[in-house]
Amino acid sequence: MPLLQATGVTKQFGGLRALSNVDLTVEEGEIVGVIGPNGAGKTTFFNCLTGMETRTSGEILFRGAPLPTRPDRVTVAGVARTFQNIRLFHNMTVLENVLVGTHPRSRAGVLSAIGRGPRYKREERKAESTSRELLSFVKLDGLRGELAKSLSYGDQRRLEIARALATDPGLLLLDEPTAGMNASETAGAIALVKAIRARGIGIVLIEHDMRFVFGLCDRVAVLVHGEKMVEGSPAQVQSDERVISAYLGRPAE
């Protein structure tokens, strides 16, 4: 059973068809890249998967069951994401950001938060130790007490990943994880994505850095004008005529 199976995902904005009949399958522990020119519908596809936009039609199965259509329920079901334009909780500390991520994996309600019984304390300790572990996993453990907004750009990207991992996902959607990073930060990101896979988490990533995509992904799907043009191994995609012309244009006849 595949981890994620999306079939026929379509999104219509008025007269504009942003996505038409996109299929994508992700197996356990797989890294899948989604590439395509600007405006091809990559982020819209992520938004439809995570319920941030309602899809016009299409079916999405996660671990064999239909994926809910509300963002918080999608996360509870086990699909987490990061955002293209980083969306951290800027005025919370680094640790607090990750603690918020543990929300769907804890249950304390109003009464137990007021009463603070042993179960509440146990849960809170566990959330904190998970968060600390994740922060050291993304190498931010020295910055726990800093405000998220005071972090450097690359650190903010990694914090966003740690926060998404705190929701304990089976599938992680990364929207341009290396945007705005320099070469050494990108190298770090490659190692990080591999380490996430090693934790048994499937990954779908949108990326414009081709070296990053082709060096990392098991499979690459190319979206052009809302349609999936090609899907295959990096080598197949790289040599496909249609992809080359979509990116570079056709040679003059």
Partner: peptide, 21 residues
């Protein structure tokens, strides 16, 4: 508590808070 953190997260960025479940 977990609830206070959720409130502050909503205040900071509602969409991101939803993405945190």
């Amino acid at each position: 508590s977990r609830i206070g953190r959720a409130w502050v997260a909503i205040r900071e960025d509602e969409l991101a808070a939803a993405a945190m479940g």
